[in-house]
Simulated scan of single mutants.
Amino acid sequence: MPVYTVHAPSPAGADLRAADKFVFVRDGFHFWAMIFGPFWLLWNRLWLALIGYLIFVAAFNAGLSSLGRSSIFFADLIVAVLMGFEASSLRRWTLSRGKWRQLDIVVGDDGDTAERRFFERWSEKNGIAGDQWTIDRGGPPPTRSVPGQPFSNPPPIPAGGIIGLFPEPGGSR
């Protein structure tokens, strides 16, 4: 199962209001980072990592230019595989430079499962599990007949009948 690290935007931003800004970074091999390394770095807005990658590859290829094209190809292939393995580390490094802090490590089949597991554990730890504003999407809808529900009574029907576009039965058209 994939492992995800959870990052919050700032040390003070790890509260309920900033929960939509949390970032989940999957640990492991990133295929698209291996195939399209610079474009993957651009897509994820890892600017310093992109500059370092381009400088490293240019200097590495210049240093290997005397050995021939096949050695440059194999060296670039090794650099691409290393980029696939270290892509998530580069993303975590960029987040830590931006004063993001790592909140937790979560294991899940996919990003949605990891997010659900994290927020279940995080809400219990922060004491917001019984919050009245949270909604259980799997339960039945709330009803007015259950005592203790925070509903008001419906407004009374107007004395003149129902207001709307429909005429009264038996009336003129």
Rank of each mutant, 00 (worst) to 15 (best):
A87Y: 01
L64K: 04
S96W: 00
S89D: 13
G98D: 11
S71G: 02
W100T: 04
R101Y: 11
R97H: 11
W93A: 15
D104M: 00
T94L: 01
R91D: 06
R69K: 11
N61M: 12
A87M: 05
F73M: 12
S70F: 05
L64I: 05
L64C: 10
S89P: 01
A75H: 00
S88W: 15
G68E: 12
L103Y: 05
D76T: 09
G98M: 01
W93K: 01
L64Q: 06
E86V: 00
I78R: 02
R97M: 12
I72P: 03
L103T: 08
L82F: 06
A87V: 02
W100M: 14
S71A: 15
W100C: 13
I78V: 15
R92H: 05
S89K: 14
F74M: 14
A62E: 09
A75F: 00
S66D: 11
S89Y: 07
W93G: 12
R92D: 09
F74T: 06
S70I: 03
S89C: 08
L77R: 02
A62Q: 07
I72C: 02
L77S: 13
A80F: 01
S65T: 05
A62I: 07
S70D: 13
S89W: 08
I72E: 08
L95T: 05
R69N: 10
S65A: 14
L82G: 15
F85Q: 07
I72K: 00
A87C: 07
R69Q: 10
D104L: 00
I78P: 01
L95P: 08
N61I: 03
A75P: 04
L77K: 03
L90H: 01
V79F: 11
A75E: 06
L77P: 03
S88V: 02
M83V: 03
S70V: 02
V81H: 00
L64E: 04
N61G: 04
R101L: 14
A75V: 04
I78C: 13
A75W: 00
F73P: 01
I72A: 04
R91N: 08
G84S: 07
D104T: 03
S89Q: 10
W100Y: 15
S88L: 03
S71D: 07
R97G: 09
F85P: 02
R92E: 15
L103N: 11
W93R: 06
G98V: 00
